[in-house]
Every structure is written in structure tokens, then in C-alpha cells.
């Protein structure tokens, strides 16, 4: 999978190819859902917003200019949606995350439960911009400059967000022993 393949997919989507849209969803659903899950702290809301993100990508395929990767473009759409919906889900978050933390994800065996809960709690305690920067750079694998492009924030701000966010998360893990 290369960036050229992705650009070809978006070009096909602009021409109305539903097959290309299917492939785009297949390729990038993990990144978009991961980003939104960390951002919202609620898997169901995040998946719902991820679906909306892909529909927006279909209807606004012409807005892709090619100056960023397709994955970055999709995460940018997701970020704007999450920011727009911030107020409504902030009210529900405390209730829903209590339920979420009690659940056990399928691929949770790789990390101890205490670490996962501590990191998740610490991540949700970060301000939204900082959480987004940390997720994009430490989880989704974007560079600082790519994350700055996605979030529409200055590069220095993103670097500072990642540095501080990472420190806070490490502190939480260290507290677990």
C-alpha cells in the first residue's frame, strides 16, 4: 500500500467509484477509529463518528488537494468532526467511560490492565488538543509536522503538546510501579 495507491483511490472516488470507497474504508478504518477512540474515550461514539468521517470523505472527495497523505486528510476530517461535537459528548463522557473501562477489549493482552486503565484515564484528562496531538504522534504514527497539518496548529505547539502529554502518561505508568 503506497500513497500513490491512496491518491488513485481518491481520484476514483471523485469519479463515483463505490469499489474504491470500499477499499479506502478498509485501508484506513483502523487509523481513523483509533484516533477517534482515544480522542472521545468512548468506542461506540468514536466508531459512529468514524462512519460519518468516511461519508464526508465520499461527499467531499474533491477537497483532497494532495498536499497531505490520504490518511492525514481523513484524520483531519475526523478531528474537525470531533471538535464540533465536543460539547455534546463531553457531557456524556464521564458516564460512558465508566462503563467502557469495565470492558475488556479483544487485543488487551499485550499490556497489563493497570497500565491500560491508567493511560486511558490520563489520556482523557489531557486537554483535547493535547490528546489529539499525542494520539496522532504516539499511536497513529504521524510525524509532528503531519500532525500539525491535520490539527491546523503550529508545529511548535504540536511538539510541546506531545512532549507534555507523553510526560503525563509516563508519570501515570510510573505511579503503577
Amino acid at each position: 500500500m503506497t500513497d500513490d495507491d491512496d491518491v488513485a483511490l481518491v481520484t476514483a472516488i471523485r469519479n463515483g467509484s463505490e469499489l474504491a470507497f470500499n477499499r479506502l474504508v478498509d485501508r484506513h478504518q483502523q487509523a481513523v477509529r483509533t484516533f477517534l477512540r482515544k480522542l472521545l474515550g468512548n468506542d461506540a461514539d468514536a466508531d459512529d463518528m468514524a462512519q460519518e468521517t468516511f461519508l464526508t470523505a465520499w461527499t467531499h472527495a474533491r477537497s483532497f488537494r494532495g498536499d497531505a497523505s490520504v490518511r492525514g486528510w481523513l484524520c483531519g476530517i475526523a478531528w474537525r468532526k470531533a471538535k464540533g461535537a465536543q460539547r455534546s459528548w463531553a457531557q456524556q463522557r464521564s458516564r460512558d467511560t465508566k462503563y467502557q473501562w469495565g470492558q475488556s477489549p479483544d487485543n488487551a493482552a499485550a499490556a497489563p490492565m493497570e497500565d491500560r486503565l491508567a493511560v486511558r484515564r490520563a489520556l482523557q484528562a489531557l486537554p483535547l488538543d493535547q490528546r489529539a496531538a499525542v494520539t496522532l504522534c504516539l499511536v497513529c504514527g504521524f510525524s509532528h509536522s503531519e500532525a500539525a497539518g491535520i490539527l491546523g496548529a503550529p508545529l511548535g505547539t504540536v511538539k510541546s503538546h506531545v512532549l507534555r502529554g507523553r510526560e503525563r502518561l509516563l508519570k501515570e505508568i510510573a505511579g503503577n510501579g
Binding site: Q29, Q30, R33, D43, D47, N107, A111, P112, V139, L169
Partner: peptide, 12 residues
Amino acid sequence: RLTAALNADNPP
């Protein structure tokens, strides 16, 4: 440990 915890509950 941080990397493992951050990636523990990613979707497939």
C-alpha cells in the same frame, strides 16, 4: 509499557 498500553485496545 506506554506504547503497549496506548495500542492495547486498537480496533482490528
